[in-house]
């Protein structure tokens, strides 16, 4: 049953991607840059949920994530992980494939050391034009080491669109909604993993200016919120600070979290 649900999700999403790819394969958008400012530095879009835009050939990203933890419940005051991603393909003309490698255990509280565990993620995505994209993906697959038994792979399909808000001094709103299983579902207390079946996740980012955004995010499991900023105008460095699990789910308190990501082109 579980596999059937996953297969359906993938077949539906692939069909959507095929249609989308054909629809915009020949479209191009050329727009004059009125400000002359390098359009390379923007604040973040989500704080936990995957989005439909992704890396394609020529794009890559690296970064780290860290969060506080309740020491009495987890044995440590905090933990985090690091990741690197790169893209293949062309999401504007056809599809892009973003491949992610994540490495767990930035702290060694459990006897684990950095690099002892990790996983791969893949995202097949296509840009629809006009600030919209759709994607299907999997996170937490091909796990190794300490991650092998403590995580499970999660598949998802997601759509994202950027909207202009206001006229003379515009702002931007990026809405993101998706459906996924496992990590996008509430926890089953008897197993510690996600409940069976699909769950909804989504995020909303309001860009006050290009380099500052306010984010609300529901991962399907936790509600998170954060403030993201890009400190340098010409560097694609994004820092997001915020709180995770703000609704005290599973009798656990909210925790502080931070991500630092750097995207680059080659």
């Amino acid at each position: 049953m579980h596999m059937k649900h996953r297969s359906k999700l993938f077949f539906c999403a692939f069909g959507l991607l095929a249609l989308a790819g054909n629809a915009h394969a020949e479209s191009t958008q050329i727009v004059a840059n009125t400000s002359g400012q390098a359009a390379t530095s923007f604040a973040g879009v989500s704080f936990g949920s995957p989005i439909a835009f992704g890396a394609d050939w020529g794009s890559a990203g690296v970064g780290i994530f860290g969060q506080t933890l309740n020491k009495s419940a987890t044995g440590t005051r905090g933990d985090g992980s690091a990741g690197v991603a790169f893209g293949l393909g062309d999401a504007d003309r056809y599809v892009g494939l973003e491949t992610d490698v994540s490495i767990a255990d930035l702290s060694s509280y459990n006897g684990n050391h950095f690099g002892d565990g990790g996983a791969l993620g893949f995202k097949l995505h296509t840009n629809l034009g006009d600030g919209a994209a759709v994607a299907v993906g999997v996170v937490g697959t091909a796990r190794w080491g300490s991650e092998k038994d403590t995580n499970r792979a999660s598949v998802y399909a997601v759509g994202t669109k950027a909207f202009r808000v206001g006229g003379v001094s515009p702002h931007a709103l990026v809405l993101n909604i998706g459906i996924g299983d496992e990590g996008f579902r509430p926890i089953n207390p008897s197993t510690g993993f996600g409940k069976k079946g699909p769950g909804i996740f989504g995020s909303m980012a309001f860009y006050i200016v290009p380099q500052v955004s306010v984010i609300a995010d529901y991962t399907g499991r936790f509600f998170n919120a954060g403030l993201s900023f890009a400190p340098f105008k010409t560097q694609p460095l994004t820092v997001t600070l915020g709180g995770v699990n703000l609704t005290n789910r599973y009798d656990t308190k909210p925790q502080a979290a931070m991500t630092i990501g750097y995207g680059f082109h080659f």
Binding site: I51, G61, S81, A85, S102, K123, G140, A257, T259
Partner: peptide, 29 residues
């Protein structure tokens, strides 16, 4: 809670790559 429940590992990638507009390609879409 540090990894599976909060999805730390997934969170990392989503936060570092997917949600960093600088890492989501540079084409017109």
């Amino acid at each position: 809670i540090g990894s599976g429940a909060f999805g730390t590992d997934n969170f990392t990638l989503n936060s570092n790559t997917g949600d960093n507009p600088g890492a989501t390609g540079r084409g017109p879409g």
